[in-house]
């Protein structure tokens, strides 16, 4: 395991230079060790993105509950204190966007935020209104990433998003799926559409995407966001009944969440994972997965085999 010491600035400049070949970068060669989390470049822009981001499905859908909003603000504070970047949400997630926007405002819009949300409507025209609503809820004039949620009307929305990107009203665009749905259609989109990001389900137990979609994304220079890293909690509930394997220490893991996250983000084609949590201690554990050594290909195979055998 190699641990390079590079500053975030140097990592950014280096990433710019190698962005088109970023899928070839071995994750264990790209580490920052200056207290900042490990980053990987977004292939289309070269911008470094911390390999552990944050999802908001369920965890940030708390409505107007002031107690819960306080707790989520603490979670976000811990996220940014640990060098977090990407926050991913969707209009489908109830009040999650409003809650994220409220928390960001209370934290004075922390630096480093990479805002990612989605458009989720069957109507292309309504998509524009929905995007405007999302910008208002987040409290941002321009979002960093807009994705077509669950491929819903992706043909219509990608036209809109491409036009917005050309206008500079959104920085990057992409599409999403989850739970392994519609992979054939997703592959078609990756092959034919000029997108920056693809979001899909990938974790140590759901590895179908390794066969085609991840290599395809790498070949096309598309950043990959891995959702459901813990299978919505069921995966971590299953593995945490067992003691950490000995190899966990080799990659600086102190708990199972870090093992599961390091497995995901150490895949050369994966840009970041987006675990969701409503607890500060879990957030700190998750963000610790963006530090230290990462597994190489041989250890990744062993990790998958050992977890499958549990």
């Amino acid at each position: 395991m190699d641990r390079s010491c590079v500053s975030s600035r140097r990592a950014f400049l280096a990433a710019l230079a190698v962005a088109p070949l970023s899928f070839l970068v071995q994750p264990d060669k790209a580490w920052a060790a200056d207290g900042q989390p490990i980053t990987k470049p977004i292939p289309s822009t070269g911008e470094p993105l911390p390999v552990v981001g944050m999802g908001t499905w369920i965890s940030f859908n708390v409505g107007g509950d002031p107690v819960a909003r306080d707790a989520r603000t603490d979670v976000l504070r811990a996220f940014f204190a640990a060098g977090g970047g990407m926050i991913d949400s969707s209009p489908m997630y109830g009040t999650a966007e409003a809650v994220v926007g409220s928390c960001l405002a209370r934290l004075d819009r922390p630096e480093g935020l990479f805002s990612a949300t989605k458009v989720w409507t069957s109507s292309t025209a309504e998509g524009l209104e929905q995007i405007a609503t999302s910008e208002r809820l987040w409290g941002l004039q321009r979002l960093d990433l807009l994705q077509v949620h669950n491929l819903l009307n992706w043909q219509g929305h990608l036209q809109t998003l491409s036009a917005m990107k050309a206008d500079g009203t959104v920085r990057t665009i992409g599409v999403t799926t989850s739970h392994g749905r519609r992979h054939a259609e997703l592959a078609q989109i990756l092959e034919t559409q000029p997108i920056d990001f693809v979001q899909l389900t990938y974790n140590i137990a759901d590895r179908d995407v390794e066969a085609r979609l991840l290599p395809l994304a790498a070949e096309r220079g598309i950043a990959v966001i891995a959702n459901r890293p813990f299978q919505g909690g069921s995966l971590i509930d299953r593995v945490k009944r067992h003691p950490l394997p000995g190899w966990a220490r080799e990659i600086d893991c102190t708990d199972w969440s870090q093992v599961l996250l390091k497995f995901i983000v150490s895949h050369p084609a994966v840009t970041c994972a987006i675990p969701a949590t409503s607890r500060v201690d879990h957030m700190e554990q998750n963000m610790a997965a963006a530090r230290g050594d990462m597994p190489d290909a041989a250890l990744r195979r062993r990790m998958a085999a050992d977890v499958a055998a549990l």
């Binding site: 369920i58 509950d65 819960a68």
Partner: peptide, 20 residues
Amino acid sequence: DLLSYSLVDLIPFSRETYFR
């Protein structure tokens, strides 16, 4: 396309949030 959604997709909140 409602058929592309599962039951879990329709319940985007936690038990704690539901009780609250």
